[in-house]
Amino acid sequence: MQKDKSYIDTSKAVINIRDLYKSFGDLHVLRGVDLDVYKGENVVVLGRSGTGKSVLIKIISGLLMPDKGKVNVLGKDIDKLDHKELMALRLKIGFSFQNSALYDSMTIRENLEFPLVRHVKNLSRGEVNKEVESVLDSVGLSQTINQMPSELSGGQKKRIGIARTLILKPEIMLYDEPTAGLDPITSIEINELINEVQDRYHTSSIIITHDLTCAKITGDRIAMLFDGQFLRVGTFEEVFDTDEERVRSFYDYNFTE
């Protein structure tokens, strides 16, 4: 059944990327990337490993700076922000890492509290607990609150990683390979969680993946990255309804693997 996604506003781009270049030494990773992400939509950036997908979202979050080109996030050019402005912008961006990146010396409760108590002032202990329990409940892992990250499965870690970003109520979500290393059932659960986050919080998201199932389930639009440039951008059907050899071989490999 097609879900109601009336909250997607295609007149308002929350991320606007133009002519983006990024190199590491002699390695030219991004070579003239253009992309718009509209309010409330999920855009999947699809491509093989090493094509610069993760570099793209690291630039959007300000972890890396572009060599050339414009990256505008929520109306701010990322390379023109000072440290304070960048920190303020980051509060509106949630980043879910490939390996979850949970703080392994802290319990799940402490992981979730960590950004909250530093950015939302004057919260009482009860309010902090309520926020933590609520966000943990939204990813279906209330029972793990006092566990250490090392005690959780890969799928649970991914969910907690997403919960940690949701606690600050971001406007933009960046998912780096959300289904990498997970079994098919857990992958589907994570894909559903990404859609739930979109429906519940109306976030605009970029999902980096090489998993076509993930792309098909979560993506309102797909942008296929190849050799540092977007080869095709559109809905899943639009992107793969082509005889272009590189796109076909990616599709065939994924579904015959």
């Binding site: 303020a88 949970l102 392994d104 010396s105 530093r118």
Partner: peptide, 21 residues
Amino acid sequence: AELGSMRVTEQIDAMEVSAVN
């Protein structure tokens, strides 16, 4: 070892993107 491990497992990046120094 602790900070090195946090760096390679992206925990330091995770702090940075959550606007914690």
